[in-house]
Amino acid sequence: MTAIAEMLAAEHRCCDERFAATEEAAQAGDANRCREGFQQFHAAMELHFSKEEDELFPAFEQRSGITMGPTRVMRLEHQQMRETLAEMQGTLAGGDLEEFLGQAETLLILMQQHNIKEEQMLYPMCDRVLGPAAGAVIDAMQAISTDRPA
């Protein structure tokens, strides 16, 4: 079973696309398009975080009994990304696209080394640990996207 890994890796790629569009707008000096892109990107990131933090991680922790392991590190890294995203929002509000690009570069690496950990280790572990229960977790994660306007 690789259902969880596939679904969430696809969300990572979707966030990547939005990131690239935002960054390109900043590079082009188009502050309005950049703000718009960033808003969508930011919302997609938050939605993805909540799917993991509210549904996947608790299910994994409950099933495996591991609460201080990989999910804890992932939650801390989400926090670190939220802080960086908040800084970027502040920079964008002030209109400093140059600094925004530097922060974006930094976020990209932070985000991708996090994605590597999740896609290489955590998601395959989740699929393995949850087994047949994975379907219910996926439904619960999908419900978050429909419940909440991004």
């Binding site: 690009l101 530097g102 570069e105 930094t106 932070l110």
Partner: peptide, 18 residues
């Protein structure tokens, strides 16, 4: 990465390009 972990909230951490 290491500076952000040590300094967050105390000093603004320069980004990679800085």
């Amino acid at each position: 990465f290491h500076l952000q972990a040590q300094l967050f909230g105390r000093i603004k951490v320069p980004n990679m390009k800085q």
